[in-house]
């Protein structure tokens, strides 16, 4: 099984590396880092951050907005698109187990969506080091882990949507809607309104805790802004309830668990239905 899984992963990586979306995807994340250098963020010192820290937190905030929708759309587009184009019909006529195929595809896609984001961040670190900035290694490691679980989380969701939707149009619509709902439930947009309307703090915290984008956002900001003054009111409740360490653990464990659950559910749906 592991051999077929690796072969499928490599085949998927090869397919992705030759596709247009991957080039655009890589250019966007590489471009963000370059744009941050050009705008001189590495040089600025605001609220006591070092320049590199500011670059990283800006990069992560932008990533939070772009990465989920990019991972969702490219995953559902390529998986549902491959099914429609007859790629599944042919490749699944070869003696590969469905588990090897499905998890191999996820593994390949994960490498493809995570590496450009990670490499762009490393580019920022190297640039900072060359400029003589102090490298906040602890933050870099936690940020890398956060990016990793964010990519995994939305990849799992994308695979679930791909398994449920029978056409790439439906899959893309569902992916976009998922992203939009999560975006609307971000702290500053909805939760503040809910609090001002008198919703209970438990509801607010619960929504903030189950929205992976919000979890990522709060976790990322927490490293730079321990009092979370830059975030909205729900963040304070979270901080009071969870504590810093507790929330950082949650921000790594929850998206990873959610992504794994979605991917597993997608696999159950995939293996029970028609394959092509």
């Amino acid at each position: 099984m592991s051999k077929h899984l690796l072969l499928t992963a490599l085949a998927d990586i090869n397919e992705s590396l030759r596709s247009r979306w991957f080039i655009i995807y890589t250019l966007i994340f590489g471009g963000i880092v370059v744009a941050l250098f050009i705008t001189g963020l590495t040089e600025s010192r605001i609220m006591g951050f070092t320049g590199l820290s500011r670059t990283l937190v800006t990069y992560l905030q932008i990533t939070m907005a772009i990465l989920p929708i990019f991972v969702l759309l490219t995953t559902v587009r390529s998986v549902a698109g491959d099914r429609e184009a007859g790629i599944f019909e042919y490749l699944l006529s070869l003696p590969i187990g469905l588990a090897s195929w499905y998890w191999g595809k996820i593994l390949g896609r994960f490498a493809v969506v995570f590496l450009p984001v990670f490499l762009a961040m490393m580019l920022a670190v190297v640039w900072g080091a060359l400029k003589g900035a102090e490298i906040p290694w602890g933050q870099v490691i936690i940020y890398t882990a956060m990016l990793l679980v964010l990519a995994w989380c939305f990849l799992g969701m994308g695979m679930l949507i791909s398994s449920l939707a029978r056409s790439s149009d439906v899959a893309q619509g569902a992916a976009f809607l998922t992203w939009l709902v999560l975006l609307l439930f971000l702290d500053l947009i909805l939760l503040g309104i809910m609090i001002s309307n008198g919703s209970s703090s438990e509801t607010v915290v619960l929504i903030a805790l189950v929205n992976p984008m919000q979890v990522f956002r709060t976790g990322a900001m927490m490293l730079f802004d321990p009092q979370l003054v830059l975030l909205g009111p729900s963040a304070w409740v979270i901080l009071d309830t969870f504590g810093r360490t507790g929330f950082l653990i949650w921000s790594l464990v929850y998206p990873a668990a959610l992504g794994t659950f979605c991917a597993w559910l997608g696999f159950v749906v995939f293996k029970r239905g028609d394959l092509p």
Binding site: A11, N14, E15, R18, G86, I87, E89, Y90, S93, P95
Partner: peptide
């Protein structure tokens, strides 16, 4: 028994799949 069965079957589709792999 996918793997055991498909080891015994060779298949040529009507429309070639649009694979980008070399």
């Amino acid at each position: 028994h996918r793997e055991e069965v498909l080891k015994q079957i060779s298949f040529v589709p009507q429309l070639p799949p649009p694979l980008r792999m070399p």
